[in-house]
């Protein structure tokens, strides 16, 4: 009764793919982003935008609501836009011997000591490539973690041969992110009650950093020691074959999913080879 309740059952054929298969898809997709970035047309890696379409495509095909996808992805998008902005305004040249190509120069005034913002072509090309690579890799990981529970991934890794202690470290690290976040808020409140200023300009916040981070780290170390004792008390270190009540299984579509991923990747690999040969 309870063992059945803790199993994860999904109806969507993509979301229910075996976690290791999804990991392979993520790996192939990420590597291909790097390769596709080298296929340039007039200096621009346009194909990265095409490749990126797989991320929202996979997410929606997996049944992820747009709101949920957007909530995770929008944070990465902000970083990507910042990178484009910094690169296109500041990065002027690829190196010695290359001319500076100014795409746009805005004149606020003709007075010589006034800085006129300029968009540089090389910076724009670089920024777009870097940002699209980040969006591609981050996006595919967002898809992975939104369609796969941590315990599914952990169980699949263990079945693939990863040592159970390594999967424990993986799972507990993910859990601890949330716990540390809560603890840091508690510590900040405690320090505030002791008169430490935690709100204000960046210098005030910097001053509050160490009184907040030191107790957080120390409590994490103490908690780790006690957790080791807990694990030992529950036979974690016992050298025997472990039973596992939570299981993950293949849904039968893994071969097809990997096949499509590899086939699409080969298209771009061949494209790149042809471009290189010419």
């Amino acid at each position: 009764m309870y063992i059945e309740q803790i199993q994860i059952r999904k109806t969507n054929p993509i979301a229910s793919l075996y976690p290791i298969t999804k990991l392979w898809i993520v790996l192939i997709y990420s590597v291909m982003s790097g390769i596709i970035a080298t296929i340039r047309f007039n200096g621009y890696a346009y194909l990265l935008f095409v490749w990126f379409l797989a991320v929202p495509g996979l997410s929606f095909a997996s049944g992820i609501p747009f709101k949920k996808f957007w909530k995770a992805f929008s944070k990465v998008l902000i970083v990507a836009l910042m990178i484009i902005g910094i690169q296109m305004f500041l990065v002027q040249t690829a190196g010695e011997g290359h001319s500076i190509v100014e795409l746009v120069r805005w004149h606020i005034t003709d007075w010589p000591f006034v800085i006129a913002p300029t968009i540089y072509e090389y910076g724009l090309q670089n920024g777009l490539e870097l940002s699209m690579n980040i969006l591609n890799v981050a996006g595919i990981f967002v898809w992975l973690f939104q369609t796969t529970e941590n315990k599914e991934l952990s169980r699949a890794l263990e079945k693939s041969g990863l040592h159970y202690k390594s999967t424990y470290v993986f799972m507990s690290s993910l859990q601890m992110i949330e716990v540390l976040g809560k603890n840091s808020k508690t510590i900040m409140n405690a320090q505030r009650a002791r008169g430490v200023e935690t709100e204000g300009n960046v210098f005030v916040r910097m001053k509050a950093f160490f009184p907040s981070i030191v107790p957080l780290v120390l409590s994490a170390v103490t908690n780790t020691e006690e957790r080791v004792l807990t694990l030992e008390s529950k036979g974690f270190d016992t050298p025997c074959k472990k039973t596992r009540i939570f299981e993950v299984n293949k849904n039968g579509h893994e071969g097809l999913a990997l096949g499509i991923t590899i086939a699409l990747s080969l298209v771009f690999v061949v494209w790149k080879v042809l471009q290189w040969v010419r």
Partner: peptide
Amino acid sequence: FNQISGVKDT
């Protein structure tokens, strides 16, 4: 709190 394994959901 420290007597929970940290890896189980239920």
